[in-house]
Design a protein around this nucleic acid. Structure first.
Lengths: 329, 329
DNA sequence: TTGAAAGCGATACCAG
DNA sequence: CTGGTATCGCTTTCAA
């Protein structure tokens, strides 16, 4: 590097000066910094990373970046990493396993130093490679891979509480609209829902509908089908706010009154839920914190001073709004 | 690399085989590929990139990843790049100039091969470095930097058309709720709005409110203020769907009827706008296509076969829903 | 088609 | 505190 020549020092001194090493006179450091700046010099990323064996990048794998809940998590991740000068790479998989593996390779090849999984699954590529566990954390959705920490909420308990709330309002024919059955997060919510129903002696009315997607469109279509039934539910617990938005839309379209005829509860507390009509009662998930804590956990895990924390459960909160009406009795 | 030893060939042959070079026997290539796979070998990313002077990564700079309109654009970018085996890095700046420059350095240091700007501004860092123009494209919001192509919609014309639509319904006291005045995209929309008002002889009623953010909260607060006025507008053209959601919420809270008393038009056609109550009339922006075309343009520009395309204007569409009611006359 | 050797641009280690 | 040198892991050029 010719900054060395210009400064009349050895390249290694330039390197030390620019990376803020202590073992360089402040005077020398300043002089080199000035020369570098004047010449618009910045160290080549790939060369540094090759030598120092760090990418200074963390990869976040999301199933779908357009889903309502992920951007806020990513925001939290960014905030945590920014403080450490670490960049964030995003990859969305859309459930495509091939794509998942391609992204996984970013970790294996050293393009990223760590992985934050929001998709609830460790890519196949890591099977039989337990040494990568310490470079991976799962956020929002747990994964089945030994040694990978999880940061999320207690979904079972949240669904339980939400269902109990509906029951406390006098609702009994409560339907649970959920996401893919295979996803542990939806399984947990369904479990909490069933527990509450059973506890209230309403098991006979319990019904879980697992949908392949938890989008607005998906919720809309599901309710269209349900509204053709002879006996309508009097409440619906939705596994995402998006499902609830679509579902409520369908009700409106056929003149079913919300919350009078059917009450709705969502999951996420997306910003829209407050502006929606009726404002949506929903389980608030600390998305940003999940991302923030997840990133911090990852950094600690990578640098080896993680005291075997296997799961961090953050608090959720049931936000009561008008979509469930008031107590009927 | 010991794959070479295992295969009994020279490292260079392994390199050639794995990168699919033609000048290697198919037989040799297959044999090496098999051995590499069996041993879980993948070439180190940073070393490859150092040598070949490519990062195979594109950086997308967004002002705020939680804004409703960006994720879809990113989706389009990902789709376009995935086909070329190029990864996507995301950085959100939250308007922080220092953060912008830090991200810019990713391009300068070679951590990324190109830059897609969704924030309407080329980072300071590139001032006086025109050679980077060919590695940058601006999507959604144009930037002021010679040689940087722009992919977006005709905002002025879209706002003009939306305003004309409101006028055609008999509305006359139309307010325009917009984002930061400094942003050219909002300036363009305001211009179209003014043109329509002037054309209809309603210039006297024209009023543009520039808000620092175009979020739900921002729209909600703005309308709260406006609704205390003696003379209410009879329509509001919002520069984003989010503003509209918040604004309509405020109307609902004080009992103002939408669309009877005030009609609303949004911008973006976010998925929620259809499920909202009332369903929101809005300008549909082809967000995904913008991202897709933007990424393609960038790739062509980087590889030098860009025929000096300076702007690609994609079609928008006014989606008419119930938030403006029907013609009053 | 393959091998040998020379870097890519930095950092790290060992002397001084 | 600074200089010299080996080296990170791969690709590429030049010969054979």
């Amino acid at each position: 590097m010719d900054i060395a020549r210009l400064a009349g020092v050895n390249p290694s001194t330039v390197s030390r000066a620019l990376s803020g090493s202590q073992s360089v006179t402040e005077e020398t450091r300043n002089r080199i910094a000035a020369i570098a700046k004047a010449n618009g010099y910045v160290a080549n990323h790939n060369a540094r990373m090759l030598r120092s064996r760090q990418a200074h990048q963390i990869l976040v794998i999301v199933p779908n970046i357009a889903a309502f809940s992920h951007p806020d998590v990513i925001l939290g991740v960014e905030e945590a990493l920014e403080e450490h000068g670490i960049g964030v790479i995003i990859g969305s998989t859309k459930g495509n396993e091939e794509r998942e593996n391609a992204l996984a390779r970013q970790l294996i090849t050293g393009a990223a130093d760590g992985l934050i999984l929001l998709n609830g699954r460790v890519p196949e590529e890591f099977q039989g490679l337990p040494q990568y566990a310490k470079r991976i954390v799962a956020v929002s959705r747990p994964v089945d891979f030994p040694g990978v920490p999880f940061i999320g909420i207690d979904n079972e308990s949240a669904a339980l509480e939400a269902t109990q709330y509906l029951i406390s309002l006098g609702r009994s024919r409560i339907l649970h609209l959920s996401g893919p059955r295979e996803s542990s997060i939806f399984a947990a919510r369904a479990k909490g829902y069933h527990a509450a129903m059973a506890e209230a002696g309403l098991e006979a009315h319990a019904e879980v509908m697992h949908l392949p997607f938890f989008t607005i469109t998906s919720g809309r279509q599901a309710l269209r089908d349900i509204l053709t039934r002879r006996h309508l539910p009097d409440a619906v617990l939705c596994a995402s706010d998006e499902l609830a938005f679509g579902a409520i839309q369908s009700c409106r379209e056929v003149g079913i009154k919300v919350p009078e005829q059917i009450a709705f509860v969502g999951f996420d507390n997306h910003p829209v839920s407050e502006a929606f009509s009726p404002p949506l009662t929903t389980v608030s998930v600390p998305r940003r914190d999940l991302g923030y804590v997840g990133a911090q956990t990852l950094l600690r895990s990578i640098s080896d001073d993680l005291s075997e924390t296997q799961a961090q459960i953050l608090p959720y909160e049931l936000i009561v709004r008008a979509s469930c009406g008031r107590n009927r009795w």
